[in-house]
Design a binder for these strands. Structure first.
Length: 194
DNA sequence: CCCTGATTCGC
DNA sequence: GCGAATCAGG
């Protein structure tokens, strides 16, 4: 496969959009993510903001000769587009936070109710979910992938929070058990009215 | 183990 | 210029 103008264009566009190298490679086809990354570097558009990765400090090569002309940080101004989240500053000084919430008192002894409104869900689904919880890998946010169950477990307000992490159903965000909880068939919750 | 980008270096 | 192998890390 060669880097035709069109392919390079797609590469640039997707890279600018924040797509990962593997995603771009998948889209282009015929190339690996390594090829994409290599090309990205050769094109001089490496650092993309908010990539989530760390730049490799690495050791400076003792080689004195100018071997790599560092790309002069192009002005890739056109970012945006994909930032609907206004980033609420969590830095709320002191002061205030008056009658914000009734403050969920967290009595250590009293387990909080499960996050989903587990009430009108088929007993079978609940049973499966319970079992899944026992086997949950208890992974962190960073460890979530398209193939891990993203069902939250525990209390986000405490350290005892993690994600199920079991093998997710292809195309689904959750494992089998949690998919059953998340996607209740209409027939199942119908007639239960409220 | 899944994934991410970065770098190196023979081709 | 290209990209697999490898590295470094989440």
């Amino acid at each position: 496969m060669t880097w035709t103008d069109e392919r390079v264009e797609t590469l640039k566009r997707m890279w600018a959009e924040g797509q990962s190298a593997s995603q771009i490679a998948k889209e282009l086809g015929g190339v690996t993510r390594n090829a994409v990354i290599g090309k990205v570097h050769r094109l001089g558009l490496s650092n993309r903001n908010a990539a989530g990765e760390t730049a490799k400090p690495k050791e400076e090569q003792p080689d004195t000769s100018a071997r790599q002309a560092e790309a002069p940080a192009k002005a890739e101004a056109s970012e945006a587009a994909a930032s609907p989240a206004p980033e609420k500053a969590a830095a709320e000084p002191a002061a205030a936070a008056p009658a914000a919430q009734p403050a969920r008192k967290h009595v250590p002894g009293q387990p909080l109710p499960p996050q989903p409104s587990a009430n009108e869900i088929s007993p079978e689904a609940l049973a499966k979910a319970s079992e899944a919880e026992k086997l949950a890998r208890r992974i962190s946010l960073m460890e979530l992938t398209e193939r891990t169950c993203k069902w939250p477990l525990g209390d986000p307000a405490t350290d005892d929070f993690y994600f199920c992490g079991l093998a997710a159903l292809p195309g689904k965000p959750y494992c089998e058990a949690h998919t059953a909880l998340a996607y209740q068939p209409m027939s199942a919750r119908r007639d239960r009215k409220r």
